[in-house]
Design a protein around this nucleic acid. Structure first.
Lengths: 293, 293
DNA sequence: GGTCATCCGTATCCTTGAGATATGGAACCC
DNA sequence: GGGTTCCATATCTCAAGGATACGGATGACC
C-alpha cells in the first residue's frame, strides 16, 4: 500500500502537537481514525514514527527525519498547484507572439514593453512571419497572439484593430512621377509591378490590389519578394514599381520615391488576433496595451 | 479540496499514455473513474491539464509543467519512505550532494571519500547538474549540499570556497595561437566563440566573459553547449574558440590547444554551499573535509 | 458518403474504507 | 483506590472512489 498525502498531513499534525487528541481537533476529526491512519503509515514505512506511552508521544529518529521530508512535500504540492494555476491563467510560463514585420514600424514595441513590465514572470517569445502563417500557428496553438495584416475572418479567432494605414506608391528614382507630391494609381497602369507573395495572406493581397482595381486595371506583376524591404530594394534596382502600406517608408532605400495615392479610400489594417476561447489575461490584456499606445 | 497523491499518480499515467483508456488499464481501474479524478484535479488547480478532443488527448502548457512537478513529488515521497525505513533500521539516512561536473576534476573525490569513511551509515547520493539548478534544489531541500561554480549570494545559504581557478583559452589545433605559451584575450576578438548556456548560472557566465570584456570586446557566441566537455569537442571540430576555467584541460580532446591567459586577473570559484539553518554534522562537516584536501 | 470503430464523457449503481461512536486499558495524580 | 488522562480496539455508518452501461463525437474505411 502506498501513502497518500492524507497520511503525511496527519503525521505532521501529530508530530507538531505530540498529542493525538489535540492533533485530531486541529484536523477536525475524531482521535481513533487518526491513530489508525498513523498506524497505517508506520506499517507502510516499516518502522515506528512515534514512541507512545499512554502518557506521552515522542518522535523516533526516523519520525524526526520523516517530519522534515513531509513538510517539504506538502509545501511543494501546494506550490505546484499554484504554479500550474498561474501558468493556466497566463501569469507565468511562455507567451508566443507572431507578428508581421511592419507591426514594428507601427509601434508594436510599446505594447511589448508594457507586456514585459506587467508580466515579468512570463517568457515572451517573438516570431516574425506572414499573416497566413501566423493565423495557422495561432489556430494550432504554436503562438498565443498574432499581430497580422488584413487577416481573413475566422470563427475561432477574435481581433482588434491595432493600426490603419493608407497605401503609397513606391517608385524608382528615375520614374517620371518619382518626385510628385501625390499621384493616382491610374498612372501606373503600364508599369511592371513588384509585389509581395499572395500566399502571405489573401485578404491583404486583395486590399493591396484595390487601388489598381479601382483605377480600372490589374497590375502586371513581374516579380514577387518575401518582404516589403526586399520589394523596396527591387524597386530601387529598377525592376518595377509597387503599391504598399504607408509604413513601407521606414524600410525603403533613400534612392526611391514614396508617393501618396489620391483618388482611393483603400486602406489596410494591422490587427491583434487571439483565440476566442483564450481568456488568459496575458492574451486579453495585450489588446488593451495596444489601444493605450 | 486538496489533491491527494492518487490524483498525481493518475495524472502522470494519463500524461504518459496520452490516452485515458490505456492509462486506466495501467492503473488497473476502469476509465470513467479515472476521467473523474482527473477532472477533480483540474478543478482543484483551476485550469485544464489536458486538451481533449474525442480523438486525442494532449497536455496544456500548465499540464506540461505540472507533470514534471508531479514526477518529482512522487519520486520524493517514495524516497522518503525508504529513507525513514532505513533510519528505523539503524542506518542514518541519505545525504544528497549536487555538484557541477568540473568539481570532480578539482578533487571533489577526496572529500567524498572522507565523508563516506566518517559517516558509513549514511546513504550518499550524488547528482550532477548546473549551478542554477543546484541552488534551486538546495533551497527546496532536494539536495543537502551543493558544489557549485560562482553561485549568486543568497540569504538562506552559506558557502565556503572549495577551489579557485584562472581562465584559459581553448583553441582548435589549426588556430594561429594554438601553440602559444600564453595569449591575451584580445587576440580572440574576431574569433567565433562556443560557450556554455547562460541559464546554467548567471554569475558564472559573467565571470567567464570578463577576460573578453576587459580586453574591450564582447565575444561573438555562435553556439552554446550543455557541458564543458561538449564545448571542448565543438572547439576541436572547428566551430570556434572558447575561454573556460582551467580545469577544462582534463576533458579536452588531445587535438585542441589549451593556452593560459595573460593580462587578466579574472578568476572563477567553486564553492560548497549549504542551507544556513542546516547544522547537521553531515552538512557542516563536509566543508572541513573540503578544506583538509 | 454512409457505416463502423474508437474514445471520452455522463448516468447510475455498488463497494470499499475513512471517519464517528462507544469502550477498554494503562499510566499518573491525589 | 478512585479519578483523570490519553491512546488503542471494536463496531458501525456513510461518503466517495470505482465499476457498469450507455451516449455522442470524430476520424477511418470501404
Amino acid at each position: 500500500m502506498e501513502p497518500e498525502l492524507r497520511h503525511l498531513r496527519y503525521f505532521v499534525a501529530v508530530a507538531e502537537e505530540l498529542h493525538f487528541g489535540r492533533a485530531a481537533v486541529r484536523l477536525r476529526m475524531a482521535q481513533p481514525p487518526l491513530s489508525q491512519q498513523i498506524r497505517q503509515l508506520e506499517a507502510m514505512i516499516g518502522t515506528p514514527l512515534f514512541v507512545r506511552t499512554s502518557r506521552s508521544v515522542a518522535l523516533t529518529p526516523a519520525g524526526e527525519a520523516y517530519l522534515d521530508r513531509c513538510r517539504r512535500v506538502l509545501a511543494t504540492v501546494a506550490d505546484d498547484v499554484h504554479e500550474a494555476g498561474r501558468i493556466g491563467r497566463g501569469e507565468q510560463g511562455r507567451f508566443d507572439i507572431g507578428f508581421v514585420s511592419s507591426a514594428i514600424q507601427l509601434g508594436l514595441a510599446g505594447p511589448i514593453r508594457r507586456f514585459r513590465e506587467r508580466h515579468p514572470a512570463v517568457h515572451l517569445r517573438l516570431h516574425e512571419a506572414y499573416t497566413a502563417h501566423i493565423v495557422d500557428r495561432l489556430l494550432n496553438g504554436e503562438v498565443d497572439l498574432g499581430v497580422v495584416r488584413d487577416a481573413d475572418d475566422h470563427d475561432d479567432l477574435v481581433g482588434t484593430t491595432f493600426a490603419t494605414e493608407s497605401f503609397v506608391a513606391v517608385l524608382p528614382a528615375d520614374h517620371p512621377h518619382a518626385g510628385d507630391l501625390a499621384i493616382d494609381a491610374a498612372v501606373l497602369r503600364d508599369d511592371p509591378f513588384v509585389f509581395f507573395p499572395r500566399v502571405a495572406g489573401e485578404r491583404a493581397y486583395q486590399r493591396n490590389l484595390r487601388p489598381c482595381l479601382e483605377a480600372g486595371y490589374t497590375p502586371k506583376i513581374v516579380q514577387d519578394a518575401t518582404s516589403w524591404a526586399t520589394v523596396a530594394h527591387l524597386v530601387a534596382a529598377g525592376l518595377g514599381v509597387t503599391i504598399a502600406p504607408a509604413s513601407i517608408s521606414a524600410v525603403v532605400p533613400a534612392s526611391v520615391g514614396v508617393v501618396p495615392l489620391t483618388g482611393t479610400e483603400a486602406a489596410t489594417e494591422v490587427q491583434i488576433l487571439r483565440r476566442r476561447q483564450d481568456d488568459r489575461i496575458t492574451s486579453t490584456g495585450f489588446e488593451a496595451a495596444g489601444r493605450a499606445s
